[in-house]
Design a protein around this nucleic acid. Structure first.
Lengths: 216, 216
DNA sequence: TCATAATCCGTACATTTGTACCAGTAATCG
DNA sequence: CGATTACTGGTACAAATGTACGGATTATGA
């Protein structure tokens, strides 16, 4: 049994998946130190031995769970991208949908996503799916920005995704009033829209104001 | 020995601190599951028993290490805030210093900071120092923005800190070319500056462009 | 200087955890 | 239907880990 094949029986496949989802849940609740065979098995409602039957080690289980999580994220986002491309919506609407898809998830899902980011900085195998996920996020933003004639839409897209993740991370670390938080995020997104929609000359003109020294 | 007092001897205090710093290092390298008594003691170069002598449990050790980390961060930032308030600098210079202080740290320090954010979403004791740290970051940004006559400087500051942390998080998860990354971040910060420096009316005028529907 | 408290550190031990084992059951395929 | 394979799940056990213990050493203060 050098490499474990994908289970052939339906019930078995669903068990395997249940284990992966349980692992995400445990991770979000208690952090990576809480992800043990026993905790995952208990949450998935399967016997302990199932975990070692389906996965070579606990690390492999965790890693595959994280991969599944980002892969599903990408699929969602790709569906949304296709929908946005149909046209007939305002940028603001798209921005809201976009923010919601990226950052309007359950606390659990957001914690898991950020755990993936951090884990990717340590585990090379996770970098590729994480990079794909970020790219999918950015592509959606870039598409909307390009349709608007924004300056450097691909680069602006990086800024959008960054500010969304930044807000989400801060919200986890320091919860604010949800309505205020949403309003602030929306305002920040609108601001980015405005600045990136200018052409280079216009932008440079505004920017010159910030090259002057400040009075203390 | 219900509560452990602060050590009275100098050597002892420095050992205790060495343990806390070692814990941060271990955490950044291997995640929270790597933070064990033995790993921390080995990294700090002290015997295993020191860890239980100074700390009631491994969780307490971890938590205090994280608290120390954010507290030091706040102190750095407060020093920088004072320096920025002296005047005679351009906003761009301040922005660069600000970005550097927040996000230009070692990979290790950044990973640790984000681990704190996630841990704060689970451990209530961490919320207060994390909130103080975020506030310190935001205050520095708000001060510069206010000096510039920016619209709603406190709210704009939230956006700045969010975009900085977002970029930093993405950089960890998916390293880009460092020069390109820095240029993108700088451009994004400049864009936010521009948008938040407009007055409400001007901003609304620009924003109207984004209320129109998009062509697919 | 002496007594008392603080600190040190090797070691022991119970608990938790990862992982292997294997007898049994269910599915699959010829 | 029979045999072969896939899966199940209880249990065992070695390794890692958290934590306690207690005697040796060092600082502190009267």
């Amino acid at each position: 049994m050098v490499t474990k094949p994908v289970p052939s029986q339906a019930r078995s496949r669903s068990r395997r998946e249940a284990l992966l989802r349980a692992a995400i849940g445990v991770l979000a609740e208690g952090g990576s130190k809480a992800v043990t065979h026993r905790a995952v098995a208990a949450r998935a409602g399967v016997p302990l031995a199932s975990t070692t039957y389906y996965f070579k080690s606990i690390d492999e289980l965790t890693e595959e769970a994280l991969r599944l999580h980002v892969t599903e994220r990408v699929a969602e986002l790709e569906a949304l991208t296709a929908e946005a491309a149909e046209g007939g919506r305002t940028v603001e609407e798209i921005a809201l949908r976009f923010a919601d898809a990226l950052v309007g998830r359950s606390r659990e899902a957001m914690v898991a996503q950020f755990e993936v980011y951090l884990e990717a900085s340590r585990v090379p195998t996770l970098r590729e799916p994480v990079a794909r996920a970020l790219l999918a996020f950015e592509e959606l933003a870039a598409r909307a920005l390009a349709a608007l004639g924004a300056r450097r839409p691909e680069e602006a897209a990086l800024a959008f995704v960054a500010i969304l993740d930044g807000f989400a991370l801060h919200r986890l670390a320091r919860p604010l009033d949800p309505e205020r938080d949403a309003a602030l995020l929306f305002d920040a997104m609108a601001s980015l829209f405005v600045a990136y929609a200018m052409d280079e000359d216009e932008f440079e003109m505004w920017r010159a104001r910030f090259r002057r020294p400040l009075a203390g």
